[in-house]
Every structure is written in structure tokens, then in C-alpha cells.
Design a protein around this nucleic acid. Structure first.
Lengths: 157, 157
DNA sequence: GCAAAGGGGACTAAAATGGTCCTATATGAT
DNA sequence: ATCATATAGGACCATTTTAGTCCCCTTTGC
């Protein structure tokens, strides 16, 4: 369903939680408790976010995680990419040309443009937006270029 | 990776192929051959598309599938929804309030708005766009409302 | 009646996902 | 020094989802 994985969802929750109190270090157990999520899973997710450079960790007692940069500089796409890998709607929209159907599929190019548009949208949403309560105002995306279908249909025979 | 499933990808390919020769009925075997996809899978996918009302099927010899409506009236979101079910980035963005984390997650509202924006984008892309070779011109999506993060951070303690 | 199509569903193999657990290492306090 | 508290980094497993296959039935045109 074009869905995020649960882990990505959790990641967003955690990042938002951290963003709301950016001065303090947050431990895995604290976040697990607050968000009602299983502790080991929270730990695992935090590790991923840290490894991808979105969080900075400190070990030892009084350790925990803090944002690696200000919340306005962390995009929703960063969080998604950190957990799920590169964002792309189709195989061929990100892999380095490994799709053997390229020649016959016939939709690759425009699919990739759609994919890019979604990526751009997600780049524009920051962690600060997600963490705040005020509604984000997203631009109404509009229609797009008109098409001349009949000629396309004919041109193909 | 915010990815479409393979079947959805196939579905788009098939729909585009049909849209390019909208007068003729297309059989599963024909499409399988042309797109280099396994026949049974193509058949299965076509059945789904027909059941969701995007294609009209005709049985018997000389049977096959045709578009249920003109390609300009079929949105990318229709195709995705036909194969994957309702589009939504998170659990709570479509299910009828079944998420028990709603109270604590803190990102649901804005996540849903993002989700909605993607849906709108996908509504604006039609099968005609996908089927044509000319590049779709997608609108540049822009930034969004500015945020006041510090106050949010403070307001939360 | 026969061959060519789709309709419907059961089934299986493989992959992704979510979740757990263990050991090692770093850090601060006593 | 030692201990308690954290993260780091994997290995591991159970479950679910996904993709793909197969079979039997019905419809339709010749």
C-alpha cells in the first residue's frame, strides 16, 4: 500500500520525541516506555538511525541519543532512507540499471518521474514539521501536463 | 523503500500496454509474451484489475481485456489501490482507528497529511501519462510552512 | 462439440519483517 | 578498581507477505 514499514514508523516517532527535548540525551528504555514500544526493537532502530548519521550516541551511564543536527535539517526522506534504504517506487527507480525488463516495460521513465516527485515532497517535510502539533500545510499538487492519448495509441501500432 | 510491489509494477506495465492499443482486446498470454512476464502471474494480475473495475474482461475465444474507461480517467492511484489496497504510508493513515499508539505516537496527524499529499499526487498522474513516452511534467513541490521549532521543544516539557 | 479464453480459489516456496538475545565495549559514579 | 548503565554489533528465529503455480469451472465463437 505504498506503506512505510513499522520500523520506519517507530523511527519517526522516536525522532519526533527526541526533537521535542533536544537538549537531553534519550535512552532506548526511556523512549520505549514513552512510546509503548518493545525495548529491544527501539534499541535496534536507534542503532540504525545513529549509524546513518541522524543521531549521535553516547555510551555508558548517562548515555543516550541526541539529534545529529537541528530538526529543521532532518528530512522525512532521511528518516525513511535510514531504515528502508533508498526511496523509490519501483526496482528500476534506484538500482543501478539492473532491471532486465527496461526494454519492454515502457513505463519506467515516467514512473521514475513520479518517484522523484514523491522524494522531493518528502525532502520538504522536516522532522520539525513532524514533531510539531500544528498541521503542516502541504502544497496542493496540481494536475500536470495534458496528454494527447489518441495519437499515442496510434503511434504505437 | 516506499516501494510498489512487483505485482503493482506489472499491473502498470500491463495497463500501459493495453492503453496503447485501446481498441483491441488483450489476452493474458499476449501481454505475458510482450512484457516478458510469467503467464500465470499476468493472468492473476489481470483478474485483480478486472475485479477492481479498471478492466473489462471478455471470456471465450477472441476474449481478453480492455480498459473500463479512457486512459485519462484512470489514475496511477487507482492501479496501485487495485493491487495493494488503500494507499497510506502508515497503519493509522487508513485503517479505521485501530492503532493503539495513537495517543503516544505524536506524529500521526502530520504523517497523514504527508500521506494525503502523496495520494493527491498519484491521483493526478493518469494511465495516459504513464503510457506515453513524453516526460510527465510534475509540478515542483514546494517547501511548506515554516516551523518554529524552539517553542515546540519548550512547550513540551 | 471443441478450442480458446477468463473466473475463482487453493497451494507452495521464498523473501522480508519484526522481534529477541547475547556478548563486547564505553562511561561515569562510588 | 569495580560496578551499574548505556550503546555496538551481530546472530538468530517466528511470522507474515509476496510471488508464483496449478487446477477445475464457465463462457464464447467457430
Amino acid at each position: 500500500m505504498l506503506k512505510l514499514s513499522k520500523l520506519t514508523d517507530y523511527a519517526a516517532m522516536m525522532m519526533a520525541q527526541i526533537a521535542r527535548a533536544p537538549e537531553e540525551a534519550h535512552t532506548a528504555s526511556e523512549l520505549a516506555q514513552r512510546l509503548h514500544l518493545p525495548h529491544p526493537t527501539v534499541g535496534k532502530t536507534l542503532k540504525m538511525l545513529a549509524k546513518e548519521g541522524l543521531l549521535i550516541s553516547r555510551r555508558g551511564s548517562h548515555g543516550g541519543y541526541v539529534l545529529a543536527r537541528p530538526a529543521v535539517e532532518i528530512a522525512a526522506s532521511d528518516i525513511i532512507a535510514a531504515i528502508e534504504g533508498p526511496i523509490g517506487m519501483t526496482e528500476c527507480s534506484h538500482v543501478d540499471g539492473e532491471c532486465e525488463l527496461i526494454g519492454t516495460c515502457g513505463v519506467a521513465d515516467n514512473w521514475q518521474r513520479v518517484s522523484q516527485a514523491i522524494r522531493t515532497l518528502l525532502d520538504g517535510v522536516t522532522l520539525a514539521h513532524l514533531a510539531q502539533e500544528a498541521p503542516i500545510k502541504l502544497p496542493v499538487l496540481m494536475p500536470i501536463q495534458s496528454v494527447t492519448l489518441p495519437s499515442v495509441a496510434e503511434g504505437r501500432r
